[in-house]
Nucleic acid binder design. Structure first.
Lengths: 239, 239
DNA sequence: CTTGATCCTCACGCTACGTGAGGACCTAGC
DNA sequence: GCTAGGTCCTCACGTAGCGTGAGGATCAAG
C-alpha cells in the first residue's frame, strides 16, 4: 500500500528539482533521506517526499532555505509574523523596482527620440535625469510627464528646435550690441515666455524649480551651447 | 585649477562607497586608479572620479558590473537595446512579485481569520491555495476575490458555520435512512444552493470549476469532516 | 561480463562585495 | 629621532543557492 522509497534521480524527476539541489538540501540539514543503502545511495520515503513538497511550497512563496528550516523544524513557530515581515519587504522592493522602471522608461523614451544612442548620450541623459529628479518634487514630475504626453513627441521636438532658434536670435542681438530692454529683444523674450508656459503649464512652483535648476547647474547650460555672457544677457532681458 | 588626486579613503567618503568596493572595482578591471605612489597607494584623478560617477549612475539603474564594464569600455555599444532588455526583465520580475504578493496577502488574510497559526495550519492553507489556483482561471479568481470583499469577513464566517450545520443535518438524514429525494433532504439542498450561489455568483463557469475540484481533490473533503458515504449521499440528493 | 545509466564525494564557480589578519606607510606631536 | 594613531596594502575566507564538472563506485539489463 505504501509507495516504495525513491532514489535521488527519481525524486528529482518527480519534483522538477535537480539532483544537486537535493544533495544541497541534505548538506544544510533541510531534507535528509530517511534511509541509505549499504552502498550509500539515498532512499527517500513517502514522508521525505511530503516534506519536500512543503519545502517547495514555501520556496514558491519566496522564503529562504534558512527560514524554511526554522519553520519546519522549530515547534513553536509563528508563521503569520514571518509572512507579514516578508510581505512588507516584498512590497518595499516592488515599490523600488517600480520607481526604477519609471526611470528606465523615461530614459528609453528620451533615447528613442534622438537617433544617436551613444554611450555619452546615455550618460548625459542619466545625468540630466538625476539632476531633474533633484530639483522637482515627485508631484511636479508627474505633472510634467502628464503634460508631455498630452502634447505629444512631435510638438516636443518642435519646441526643442524653437529653443535653438531663440538662442541663435538672442546671440545675434547680443553681438549687435542691442539693449536688453529694446523692442526686438523683448519680442524674443515673448517667444520664450510662450515656451516656458507650455513647459510649466503656468504652474509657479514648477517655474521656481526650473529657475533654481538653471541657476545652480552650470552643466545644464552647456547642453544648448549656452555661454556665460549669453546667460547674462538673457537674464537682463527677462527682467 | 585641477583638483588634487584622491586616496581611496577620501574617494570612498566622497562617494559613499566602501574602500573594499573600490578595491573590487579595480580587481575586475572596472575602475583602476590612474596613478599609484611609490609605496603602492592608489591615487584617483578627477577623470577616475568622473568614471566612478558614471558607474554609480548605471548601478542605480540596476545594471550588473559586467554590463557597466561593457558599456563604458566597448566603443560601439548600443545602450538603448540593453536598457530595453533590462526593462522587459524588470517588468516581468515586478509582475511575478506582484502575483507573489497577492498570494501572500491572501495567506495572511486567511491566517488572521483563524486564531491558530500553527505551521500545519500554514502548510494546509498553502496547499489549499495552490489547489484553488489550479482549478480556477485568474479571471475567476479575481471575481471570487471581489465578491468576497463585497460580502465582508463576518458574512464569510457565517457561511462557514452554515456549511457545518448543513453537513450535520445531512449526516443526520443519512443516518436516519432518509431518501435523498425526500422533502426534508431537498430542503437542506435548497440551503446549499443558496450558499453555492452566493459563492459562485451564479456564474456557471465558476460552478463547473468548483465541481471539478470537489470531484478530483479528495483532500478537500477531509477539511470539513466529509466522508465518502456522506459525499455519495449529497451527490444523490443534488440530482 | 560488459555496458551505459545512475550513484557517490569533493571541490571550484558564480555576484558584489563584508570582514578580518597581518603588516607597511604617513602624519603629528614630543 | 621616536612613538602613536590613522590609513594604506595584499591575501583570503564568507555569503545563497545551487551549476558544473572530476574521478570513481554501483546498479540493472543484455
Amino acid at each position: 500500500m505504501h509507495s516504495a522509497p525513491l532514489k535521488v534521480g527519481d525524486l528529482a524527476r518527480q519534483t522538477g528539482l535537480s539532483v544537486r539541489t537535493l544533495h544541497y538540501y541534505e548538506e544544510i540539514g533541510l531534507l535528509s533521506p530517511s534511509h541509505r543503502t549499504a552502498s550509500g545511495h539515498r532512499m527517500y520515503s513517502a514522508g521525505d517526499v511530503a516534506r519536500l513538497q512543503q519545502i517547495k511550497s514555501l520556496r514558491e512563496l519566496g522564503f529562504s532555505l534558512e527560514q524554511i528550516t526554522a519553520c519546519l523544524d522549530k515547534p513553536g513557530f509563528s508563521p503569520l509574523q514571518t509572512i507579514e515581515l516578508h510581505l512588507s519587504r516584498l512590497r518595499e522592493q516592488i515599490a523600488l523596482e517600480q520607481r526604477l522602471c519609471a526611470r528606465l522608461e523615461g530614459l528609453a523614451h528620451v533615447l528613442r527620440a534622438g537617433e544617436d544612442v551613444s554611450v555619452e548620450q546615455l550618460l548625459q541623459t542619466i545625468e540630466v535625469m538625476t539632476m531633474i529628479e533633484k530639483y522637482y518634487t515627485p508631484e511636479q514630475l508627474a505633472e510634467l510627464k502628464q503634460r508631455a504626453e498630452a502634447i505629444g513627441p512631435e510638438k516636443m521636438r518642435e519646441a526643442e528646435s524653437a529653443w535653438k532658434t531663440i538662442y541663435d536670435d538672442m546671440r545675434a542681438e547680443m553681438q549687435n550690441g542691442s539693449d536688453p530692454k529694446s523692442e526686438p529683444v523683448q519680442q524674443i523674450v515673448k517667444r520664450m515666455r510662450v515656451l516656458i508656459d507650455a513647459f510649466t503649464g503656468k504652474n509657479p512652483e514648477i517655474e521656481r524649480s526650473l529657475n533654481r535648476m538653471r541657476q545652480q547647474e552650470p552643466a545644464m547650460r552647456d547642453q544648448h551651447g549656452m555661454d556665460p555672457e549669453l546667460h547674462e544677457f538673457i537674464g537682463k532681458a527677462m527682467r
